[in-house]
């Protein structure tokens, strides 16, 4: 327990500022408002990669590596759903190397749903979802083996990665797979940029699902979060201005905004 430090009025207002636009734009999207999204070449390439595999008659692999259950996985599952539908449509094979049993169970359900949505449930092969290991490098070793043995033509690496990122990406590179990666770990992004054909950086991973499916809830959410970032941007500017003012004029320093709000409303 952290005490009441986080339960301040300022925090409540900030949360409303961040989440209010999201709810507003979800509602707008549901009423049919047109919400265009800028082109992201890495996401456009996903369909191209799936099509390439179908043409070559070689399988694909999709991994979330060591990503646990949480928002990042949730974003990855949206992409998995889209890829699985394409795979089911083109009658390709999709391998899902897994490191966490709970994530494996969720991924299997998503993949099954995608096959069902394409009317190809009988083509769904649960044995393509493979639990390798929950140990980082044992998982990496298993992934290399899978990619090399199956000669995948496309590899998707989405999620939260650590030191294993380059090992995984190099494995795909060695078999000539078209690779698309997306990570919310900034430290791993350079490795993916060096090794993969396309890399989604940070929030692009979260946007991918909305971009691919164009569903109102996801599009509205994407629009809303962009407006939330504007709010944050404004707050950064205000904060920098106040900090600069306080440094230059220490005798008339502006008090903490949070404290000011508390004093005013609490």
């Amino acid at each position: 327990m952290k005490g009441v430090d986080h339960a301040t009025l300022g925090m409540l207002i900030l949360l409303l500022c961040l989440l209010g636009p999201v709810l507003f734009f979800i509602r707008r999207a549901k009423t049919g408002a047109l919400l265009p999204v800028r082109r992201i070449s890495g996401i456009d390439a996903i369909d191209e990669a799936v099509g390439r595999c179908a043409e070559m008659g070689r399988p694909l692999s999709y991994t979330t590596a060591l990503t646990g259950v949480g928002p990042v996985l949730y974003a990855c599952l949206g992409i998995l759903y889209h890829i699985s539908r394409r795979v089911a449509r083109y009658k390709s094979r999709l391998f899902l190397p897994q490191s966490a049993p709970d994530v494996m169970a969720i991924s299997e359900e998503v993949m099954r749903d995608a096959y069902r949505a394409e009317g190809a449930l009988s083509a769904f092969e649960p044995q393509n979802i493979r639990f390798l290991s929950d140990e980082q490098f044992a998982f990496a070793a298993g992934y290399i083996g899978l990619v090399q043995r199956e000669k995948v033509a496309a590899a998707f690496l989405f999620g939260r990665f650590t030191a294993e990122s380059l090992i995984l990406a190099e494995a795909g590179q060695q078999v000539g797979a078209m690779q698309i990666a997306g990570s919310v770990s900034p430290e791993q992004v350079p490795f993916f940029i060096c090794t993969c054909d396309y890399t989604l950086i940070g929030e692009e991973l979260y946007a991918a699902s909305a971009y691919l499916t164009r569903e109102p809830v996801q599009l509205g959410s994407l629009y809303g979060q962009d407006r939330s970032k504007l709010v944050l941007f404004l707050l950064v500017v205000v904060g920098v201005t106040i900090a600069t003012f306080n440094a230059v004029f220490p005798e008339s320093a502006i008090m903490n905004v949070d404290e000011a709000l508390l004093k005013a409303f609490w």
Binding site: I26, P71, E215
Partner: peptide, 22 residues
């Protein structure tokens, strides 16, 4: 950017504001 996007997804998960995909 990741933090805000993660927060929004977590919020959607919490309130089960979901699309037909899931």
């Amino acid at each position: 950017g990741s933090g805000v996007a993660g927060l929004v997804i977590a919020f959607r998960m919490w309130l089960s504001i979901e699309s037909d995909s899931f």
